[in-house]
Write a protein that binds this DNA or RNA. Structure first.
Lengths: 357, 357
DNA sequence: TGCATCATGTTAAACGATTAACATGAGGAG
DNA sequence: CTCCTCATGTTAATCGTTTAACATGATGCA
């Protein structure tokens, strides 16, 4: 003893070839029932736990697992309702096909790291034994995404991509709907809060808008498009989407001398903290200040947020299916969105109405 | 081409041995800088994505990943605040050591399945390429747990276990604190809602109490111990801990002719739905009916639940550390708990006071 | 009887890497 | 000049399976 029991030791003990033992575990029909049960008996006796997972993966080229990477750091991920809904959707599809979900940690921010450091921070991405992966919110040129596609793993993304599979929403259209909703209510000054690696609360100059996440960029474009010409639409960093950062961003926006009449946030979480901050400052949200969110997670309903609903759960289910069964699923799907108007938006107060129009 | 590029193809292209290429990727210090960069250049040129994950796992015996299994079905897991807190704790520790988190799906209920079916439903558990695993809320004799320990994988459990590592709370003591709290308020009729595979709302006869989850059993024992002799403490199934099931259980309890004065639930989620149901029925929770939860997840605070606080996040962190660094961590830890009294409990209404005492 | 078919095992070649143990030549020390 | 050390590569064994292709004897069928 001391040595681990393997397929071979079982084969020797049973006086058969390793192939036979392998068949006993994997292809019952290739063996006589008698032989099979004899082998399983010997295996049990030796305490053989069944074929080794890593060896099997190597040999068959299948891991029965798919990976997930997202913008949020893994630690925060579990408190981000959007991510949770997505994971729930993924899990639902995966459970049916006995496939594990591998959450891969990595440093989302890689600005200013050396080549070696980047490679190191991507270690887990390289070592993950998976058959494919879902990348949410990361662009094609993100090192983690690149690492995965270099491994020539099937990949499904949630952002638009030249080549490869993706599940999208029309972010620009979403932006337009938000913009139109606000425009109809008379808003001409809308601060847009986007998630960004920059300090929360800090204004993002037009020159830097190109560096934003594509989805933020598209939503922003949509909002501007739908607002009347001459509207003021400053962009503010909401940090990395965490509560604390959102609070800072909201505070900064409200502290400005030319406070906007509306805030359009990139996520419901961000919007909800804005509501909180505004309320704490005595502002009546939906009256003195309008706020919109994005995603329509459960929090949005309980906060009374006007928001864009997207079928996140369905998105997850679909992404998983696209990985598991590429032949029977489309390469690219655009999911429907819908504006849900609630109490967090309302007409601009009369004293802030613009002269024109 | 057509064939995948491997360590070998890179070696051939570079005119060196495979060992050298391997060193180039794994042990920079064993090679001259010149040689190393030449190899990496060749690798890049061939589009070699680095050593194959499965092969590496097989050869080194390390997967850089740990598995997680819990009672909740994977799909529901992402809406269970307890699980989320635990996962958050795990992720926090893992992120620092570049270890992935593998969520393994399996059918939690295995009653009435044939041997083959059980083995099949455990497929993902067998195939997961991991270095160890966390099992939350499952007993030692659960097939999934057994499968993992048969694989002789390091295991950390959250329930008491004869041999092996675990992170616990003193469930019995927790039960006592709940019991004492309710007793002090005059309660003598306390329905206990436990998660169980049985139909939600159905009463669990004393004979079946032995089959409950150990933690439920211990809490129940604690509650009974702390209530005055002669108290009535019926046990009711809360199903599998989902919202809908909780609603049914609460409804059943409140519909009974001899409605209890208090409900002690096994989780905050269950308790919160009970609050909801009771409120909808016009009962003032904390007055006509007292309700206690368990865990003190965020939901508990916002619902005003009296509950037992346990450091779930810390539990997760600790479990991960115990797996990653077994030599510098204890085999068994008991975490502190604390009763948090909020508005969901209050004195028994006078018309329901018992004669004695 | 003769031949194709079938059920049941076996042989042996991968799968793609890691890593002791061993060469080899250069440089330093005495 | 000799011996030792050190840096840098190489050789070759091994990790534990899976599976195509091949044997072999029994069975079915004309």
């Amino acid at each position: 003893m001391g040595n681990r029991t393997t397929l071979r030791s079982v084969a020797e003990a049973a006086g058969v070839s390793t192939a036979t033992v392998s068949y006993a575990f994997n292809r019952p029909d290739r063996l006589s029932g008698e032989m099979r049960s004899r082998i399983l008996a010997v295996a049990r006796e030796l305490g053989y736990p069944g074929p080794d997972a890593a060896a099997r993966s190597l040999r068959t080229g299948r891991a029965n697992a798919i990976g997930v990477i997202f913008t949020t750091e893994l630690t925060y991920a579990f408190s981000d309702p959007y991510v949770l809904a997505l994971l729930g959707g993924l899990a639902e599809t995966l459970a049916h096909s006995r496939t594990s979900l591998v959450l891969i940690p990595f440093a989302p921010v890689i600005a200013g790291l050396s080549d070696v450091e980047v490679r190191e921070s991507l270690d887990a991405v390289h070592r993950a034994v998976i058959d494919g992966a879902v990348a949410d919110g990361l662009t094609d040129d993100h090192p983690a995404v690149r690492a995965l596609s270099d491994r020539s793993l099937p990949l499904v993304r949630s952002s638009d991509t030249a080549a490869g599979r993706c599940v999208l929403i029309d972010d620009r259209q979403a932006g337009r709907e938000i913009g139109r909703h606000l425009a109809d209510l008379g808003h001409r000054e809308v601060a847009v809060v986007v998630s960004s690696p920059r300090e929360p609360g800090c204004p993002i100059p037009p020159a830097e808008e190109a560096a934003l996440h594509p989805y933020s960029r598209h939503r922003l474009a949509g909002i501007r498009e739908a607002l009347p010409a001459g509207s003021r639409v400053p962009v503010v960093s909401g940090g990395r989407n965490a509560d604390a950062a959102g609070r800072i961003a909201a505070t900064a926006i409200l502290a400005a001398p030319d406070r906007p009449t509306a805030i359009a946030a990139d996520s419901d979480v961000l919007a909800a903290t804005a509501v909180e901050v505004a309320t704490a400052q005595g502002l009546r949200v939906g009256h003195e200040l309008s706020i919109t969110g994005f995603d329509d997670v459960p929090l949005a309903a309980s906060t009374g947020l006007t928001t864009i609903r997207q079928p996140i759960h369905e998105k997850g289910r679909l992404m998983a299916r696209m990985l598991l069964d590429p032949d029977n699923t489309p390469d690219r799907v655009t999911l429907p969105i819908e504006l849900v108007a609630r109490s967090s938006t309302g007409p601009v107060p009369s004293h802030r109405l613009h002269g024109g129009t």
